[in-house]
């Protein structure tokens, strides 16, 4: 899993460098476009993902202690956070599209849909990983700690990537 985290980290780092390069090429366009994003929804989604990261960490901690019921509760909370995040993101997209801002509007919005879209794809893959963790925790015959921690590592990576995407797209001036 650490190989995936490393390669994903490097790939996203390349995306962020390219974004910053294009930002510097036309800062006025990027700032004007950024003003159309809903910062509140971005903050809410960040809080949701950070909370889900906390709950998956709690899941690992409870699982290590042998308290699998609590671990299961925490991973379900994480998954709920993931679904909520995805729902808000889709709502946000629908609002932006409704205002006429689509992928082809300008370079900023291309990056906005691209970065949030590829991140959403990671949330979907992460949800599959969380399903595997739930499957592991739901029966005493399974409960492989390594698999549980692998799923948690992936979810932390998804959370970490979002924090940078949020900072770049919504906050960076």
């Amino acid at each position: 899993m650490w190989v995936l985290v490393m390669i994903e980290g490097l790939t996203f780092a390349a995306y962020f460098v390219v974004y910053t390069y294009f930002y510097r090429q036309s800062p006025d366009l990027f700032l004007a476009s950024q003003a159309h994003l809903d910062l509140t929804l971005g903050v809410v989604n960040t809080i949701i993902l950070l909370t889900s990261s906390w709950s998956i960490a709690r899941c690992v901690e409870r699982s290590r202690a042998g308290d699998y019921k609590a671990a299961l509760r925490n991973v379900l909370l994480t998954m709920a956070g993931g679904f909520l995040f995805a729902g808000i993101k889709l709502y946000e997209w629908s609002v932006e599209i409704g205002r006429g801002f689509t992928f082809t509007t300008n370079t900023f919005f291309s990056f906005y849909y691209f970065l949030t879209g590829i991140h959403l794809l990671h949330i979907i893959v992460g949800s599959i990983a969380l399903f595997v963790v739930i499957h592991q925790l739901s029966s005493p015959a399974r409960r492989a700690q390594e698999i549980i921690e692998t799923g948690a590592t992936y979810w932390h990576m998804v959370d970490f990537l979002w924090v940078i995407i949020f900072a770049l797209l919504y906050v960076m001036r």
Binding site: M1, W2, V3, L4, I7, E8, T11, I118, L121, H122, V125
Partner: peptide, 11 residues
């Protein structure tokens, strides 16, 4: 790890 690398390549 190569399994994970495959996922990375797909993404």
């Amino acid at each position: 790890w190569f399994g994970y690398f495959n996922i990375c390549n797909a993404l």
